[in-house]
Structure formats: structure tokens, C-alpha cells
Design a protein around this nucleic acid. Structure first.
Lengths: 343, 343
DNA sequence: GTGAAAGCGCTAACAC
DNA sequence: GTGTTAGCGCTTTCAC
């Protein structure tokens, strides 16, 4: 036992089923049936049990239940960080259906740190979670498989296959396509992409961009960057030194777009009159009136809900083959895109 | 059992301490001692046990441990919503020290919904959490006391007193003071406050503003609103109809300030040349280069860390008297404040 | 419908 | 240092 000295006082005596049974004048087993909502209990006795429990302030001990039933009704959720609204919203989706179905969540943030992620998976194991939802995990396939052997998993943001592993993903390549198509339809030919380096979804977005450009006979130009505001601003500096100047920029996420927007305006360029700008993720940021960024929306809440529902389905039907759900992103047009300048 | 049909397969047989003991050629109790890191085990046997466990892929069953030890090493965390970065960052602080001290988190978001919050507290009870951290909870004092009777609590954002309840708060009145002082020092006399209605921290901020104004012989003017961007914009509309026009606005949070900023600029007012603007919370938003809002910072991560540490201390020392920690906000000067226009 | 009895996998005295 | 023994509070056959 690490850390504190653990002079923790044990819980004050909680009443047990035994106590409830005694008070209601029935057997312990009957109380158990009532709390598991068995139909085979007479209304009269059920009422007696319920009110006895209420009087005593009884609350079932989930540890005991888990031990006896070999089921915990909790699912482990692993994600990068809650500070990123993207993950926070996915989590909210998960939580919504979990609470509806009376499941508990054991939450861990791995912080893009492999060791912490492995710790989290160990915690899932030790808690004997009924299943797990891993949002863009960094851990090795082997570590994942170890958990998957013992509890079904839903993984997002990775292409991992395996028995007991279902997947929920969004189609990032399609999202990039949507962005390019929107700009091309407005008449842009010179569309530069600022990418996200080796951030989680950077690659498929870049690939989608490149393919969409080539399909239209346009020349892809990729400026390497990373998923931050500063990187977006720096990337614009590099873009402005090139020629021909692009008439539109497709940024790999909204944060990059925000940084780019700043720098473009600092340079006296008007958006969208002089240059158009598209982001990705439709974060809170993009929706700000002040920013009003055209961007690609990912159904975050829905990703979470779907992940949880998928897990429940597998719990119901452990032997069906693995499924992959792909959610489609959509274009949100705001005020940072318009036709290219004349001439 | 609600929802799914629960044809859940029990866990594949996990190895138990019995298995490990047999394999290592020792008693079950010795294995238990090793896993609890007891010093009274010879190095040789410890090594035997550890490697036997590794070979079997043994992982301790926390439910069994909880049942026997009457301690779960998990703490329940209740908060409004993860979508608000404010709560997300507090949670990250809590998680950081929890994971360091090998505690687990049972997380629930109440969504400002009293019923869901009560459900969450029930879940804490049923899980026999060792303690709870409630971030700006909405539940009644009675519901809170019920939980507090059985597990120590740390509450933030509320002034609740009670045995077994420690508190961590920030000094919102001081934050408001800082904002007013900053503006007054710049030479502003007409400072209008856009408030947050009955949002969580609205009242102390408003009160702090009013007192700070009066202390300087200035007349407080409060425009009622709520904690949203739209409300901020609407409030500006109302402000512009008044006279004399203020030379500075102190908004009750950053979101309001963002809305206000938009509308002010729409009306052709320059910030800070024509009018200064101060927000509250120092969210991500304020830090955007594009926005660059002068605001009041709350140490969010630190709030979370402190809450968790406070809880651990009480676990170590259940009978000490309740403590209240007050964290101090600080002023972050960016580009939306300056001296009032001349004349 | 209801009750009795045997565990679930571990901890915590206590003996040795 | 190490092994023995009783539970912890529930679920789950299996009789009745």
C-alpha cells in the first residue's frame, strides 16, 4: 500500500440483507430476489422487504454482489485527457447510456502516456470490469489483447482487430474530402493543408486531403505542423513565403485553424475575402460567433453512445463476430469560407 | 436488472491466490501478504510468489479484497458536466493525485440534474467508496449528509458545513475585486458588470464587484444575464442604450465576455481603445491569441489536486475537525484592457 | 413462491 | 516469518 498510512476507519456498519430479512420477517434469499427484481415474489412480501430496507437505510453492497455473481456492471473507460473537449464529449455520450442502463464507469485518463495507460488496463482487470471502452489508446496490441481475453472491448480511433474487440470510428478521410470538395466547389484551386504531424487522426485526414485534391486534378500541398494554435500560426508564416499563395487553407483541426486565422489577419489578409479557411472537429471554439469557423463536425456524443451500446450488445451476445461502426463526419459552413479572390 | 437481457457470460476463470500459492508452494496467506507489500516476508519467498503470479497472469480481485477489508480504495467524484473545461480540468487534478496514490475514481456527471445527482450518490454508497469529492453539487444538504455519514466528503463550490465534510473553494469575491481594481487603476470610473444570473458562482462575483466599486466611491451597475455567449451579446445591447456609457465591462465569465466582445465590435467599438473588457475563469478561450482576453484565473488543476489531498488526509485522520481551503484567483492581463478614452 | 446451504476470493486475527 | 481459520455480504443451485 503506497502513499497515505491507511489508518482508514472501516465503514460504519452498513445494514446487510440479513438485517433487512430479519426486519421484514423473511429469509435472506427472498430479500436478494426482491433486489434483483425477480418476478417470482408476491407483492405483499415484496412491499414488506422494500419498506424494511428503506427503514434501515439499506443499500446493497456491490462488492459482495460482484464476488458472488462474477459480474460488476461496470465498464472501464480509457481516454487521453478530459481537458480536450473532444474526449470529454465522447465520455458524456458513454456516460449517458451507461447511466440509463445502470452501468458504472471506471474512468482513467492515460494522458498519451503508455505506462499510465497500462496501469489503467490493470485497474480494469483488477476491478473485473464487464467490458472496456478505449478511446484512441496508445497501448500495444499485446496489452490490449490481454485485456480483451477477459472482457470485451470497444476501441475507437484505431484499426485493431481481434476476438472480443469491436470498433467505432469516424471516417476522417471522408471529412477531408468534404472540406476539399466544399472549397473546390467555391472555385478554389490552390488549397493548402496544414497537417497535425503524428497526432492521432492526422494521417487519414492528410491522406483524404491528398486523394481529394488529386481526384480533381489539383496539386496537394502539405505544410507539416501539429495540433496546436501556435503551430497553426507558424505554418501560415511558412505558407506566406511560398508562391503561388493558396486561396484556401484546410487545417487538420480547429486549433490549428484558430492560430492560422490570427496570423493571417495580422498580415492584413481578410477571411474569407482574401483567403478561405476550414478547420476540423467543430469544437466549441469554431462555433464562437467571434471565430465562426467553417469546419468538419464529428458526432462526438454519438460516438460515445454508440461505443457503449456496442459494448452492451456484445455483453448480451459474446460470440457474435466483431463489428466495426463507422460514423460519418459532416461539413459545417460558417463564415470563413467563400469564393477565391478575382484575378 | 434493466435494459439488456444480461446473458452476460461470467469472467473466464481468473486465477486466484489459491492457484498462486499452490504454484509457489506456499500458503494462501503468504500470497496475500506479498500482495499487500508486507515487510514480513522473506525475499526468497516473495520472489517465488511474484513470479508464480506473473506466470499465471494473476491479478487480485478487488471485489473480494473490498469485501474482506471493508475498504475499496476508490473515491466517488460527482460533477456537473465534463463538457465544461472548467470541470474537466478539476477532474484531471483529482485524477493526477488519485493515480499517484493508487486510488480509483468512480465518476458521475450530474448535469445539474438533481435526480441524476442523487442516483450518483446512491452509486457511491453501493460501491462503498472510501470517500467522495463533489464539485458544485446541486443536491440537498440532507442527501449530502446521508452520504457524509458513511464516507468523508470534500465539497467545492458550496458553503455546506457538517461533520465529515471538508471544503475547497475559490475566493470569487476576491477575483471580482481584482478585476475592478485593475480597471480602476487604469483610470476607469464607469465599470458595468454583466452577471451570471443564478449560475453557480454568480452571486459572490456580483457581490465582490459591488463592494469593490463602493469602496472606491464608484457606482455599481449590474446587467442581469447568464453564463452564455448569447447572453453576453444581449447584455451589450442593453448597455448601449444606457447613458452614460461605461468605459469598461466586467463580465461574470469568459463566455459572456466573448459574446460581449463580438457585439461591441459589431457596433464599431474598439477594444480596448473605446471600451475595456474583463472576463472570468481564464478558460482556453481567453487564451486564444484571437481573443486575448484579460480575465481572472482560477487554479483549476490545483483545486482538484487539493480536493483529493484533503480527502486522503481525512481518511488518514477521520476525527480531525472539518477544514476549509480557499484558493486565490489571480488577474491575467491580456489585450482587452487599457486606459479609458479621453474626454 | 420460499428457504437452506455452499461458495465467490480475499483479509485479518491468531497460533505456531 | 508462516500457516490456519473465520468471516466479509452477497448469489445461486437445489429442495420443499
Amino acid at each position: 500500500m503506497t502513499g497515505s498510512k491507511l489508518r482508514v476507519k472501516p465503514h460504519r456498519a452498513h445494514p446487510t440483507m440479513e438485517d433487512v430479512a430479519r426486519r421484514a420477517g423473511v429469509s435472506r434469499a427472498l430479500v436478494s430476489l426482491v433486489f434483483r427484481e425477480s418476478p417470482n415474489v408476491s407483492d405483499e412480501r415484496r412491499a414488506r422487504v422494500v419498506s424494511a430496507a428503506a427503514e434501515l437505510g439499506y443499500s446493497p453492497n456491490l462488492a459482495a454482489r460482484a464476488l458472488a455473481s462474477r459480474r460488476t456492471r461496470t465498464v472501464g473507460v480509457l481516454l487521453n485527457t478530459l481537458s480536450n473537449p473532444f474526449f470529454a464529449e465522447i465520455t458524456e455520450g458513454i456516460e449517458a447510456v451507461a447511466s440509463e442502463l445502470r452501468y458504472h464507469l471506471l474512468l482513467s485518463t492515460g494522458g498519451r502516456n503508455r505506462r499510465r495507460e497500462v496501469d489503467a488496463l490493470d485497474a480494469f482487470l483488477e476491478n473485473r470490469v464487464d467490458g472496456g471502452i478505449l478511446v484512441s489508446p496508445d497501448v500495444s496490441a499485446a496489452d490490449l489483447a490481454r485485456l480483451a481475453k477477459v472482457a470485451p472491448l470497444v476501441v475507437t480511433g484505431r484499426l485493431l482487430r481481434g476476438p472480443g474487440i469491436d470498433r467505432v470510428n469516424t471516417d476522417d478521410a471522408l471529412g477531408a474530402h468534404l472540406a476539399v470538395a466544399h472549397l473546390a466547389d467555391l472555385g478554389h484551386h490552390h488549397i493548402t493543408h496544414i497537417d497535425g504531424g503524428d497526432g492521432a487522426n492526422s494521417r487519414p485526414r492528410r491522406a483524404g486531403y491528398e486523394r481529394a485534391m488529386r481526384e480533381r486534378g489539383l496539386e496537394p500541398v502539405v505544410i507539416p505542423a501539429e495540433f496546436t494554435e501556435v503551430a497553426g500560426a507558424d505554418a501560415v508564416d511558412r505558407i506566406l513565403r511560398r508562391s503561388p499563395l493558396p486561396t484556401a487553407i484546410f487545417a487538420a483541426n480547429d486549433l490549428i485553424a484558430a492560430g492560422a486565422m490570427d496570423r493571417l489577419e495580422d498580415e492584413g489578409l481578410r477571411i474569407p475575402e482574401d483567403i478561405s479557411l476550414v478547420g476540423y472537429d467543430n469544437t466549441f471554439l469554431a462555433a464562437l460567433h467571434h471565430v465562426s469557423l467553417t469546419t468538419i463536425n464529428q458526432p462526438r456524443q454519438e460516438m460515445g453512445r454508440l461505443a457503449m451500446r456496442t459494448l452492451i450488445q456484445r455483453l448480451d451476445e459474446p460470440d457474435r463476430r466483431p463489428v466495426t461502426h463507422i460514423l460519418e463526419p459532416s461539413l459545417v459552413v460558417r463564415r470563413t469560407t467563400g469564393p477565391p479572390p478575382r484575378g
